[in-house]
Amino acid sequence: MRSFLKLWFKSAKLQIARRMAYRGEYFISLIAMFILELIGPLLIFIIYFNSEGFPGWTFYEVLLVQGILLTVKGFSFFSFAGIIWNSNVTLMRGEFDIVLLKPRNTLLMFICESFDAEDIAKFIGGLLITTYALSHINGITLVGIGLMIALMILGVGFYFIIALLASSFVFRFIRTFRIYEVMDIFELVGRYPKSIYPKAFGTLFTTLIPIFIIAVFPANALLGRLSIDMVFASVSIILLIFISLKIWFATIRRYASAGG
């Protein structure tokens, strides 16, 4: 694991150095990445500007959910979720064989090569929004912060599951760049309090597809609104990680390059 982390950091450094060669364009793309993510907070602003908003949630509490989501998403996207894009590109160019030839675990190698230097902006933007929202919320405890961070780590686990499954899908159907739109749907669900959904959907998004773990549950934990749902979602995440890993490696085993 240590050698993987070393390799990942080297790869990250290389990718950033490559982008810094055209630093003007890189900085604009960082700004663009952040601006594109503002739609969530913007919609929340519109809702609270025109109404009382969601029952039981203040504007800053829902803004906190947006900040946490962007932080978790940003971290996932720059560190490993690039495998989705890379699956599309390497398969189209027939370059995936090179990854298979490398003397390391294929998935870890693929993750190292998929570092995305632009998505750092999402992570930083998420931290900024979270900090801003927190500065308007009272009664925060250290235990709450600890629980929030623990659930955010599991939220990263959710993105890991999605990245593996989406990558497997791309391996099967080739050239499906619009798979990101399906991911956006999951994200859209995770942006709003569980209470707005019908009970059946709430249960579905807590257990089988535990989307609420990416932002709603961490925010709830910080605000001291603990529930048994968080335990169900955490267990589900751990199980789904194992299942998605199995699926990904099974897909890779069936991969036949242009040469067969």
Partner: peptide, 10 residues
């Protein structure tokens, strides 16, 4: 779901 919740709550 979102807008029904907003209209309903208000």
């Amino acid at each position: 779901f979102i807008w029904s919740a907003v209209y309903g709550a208000n």
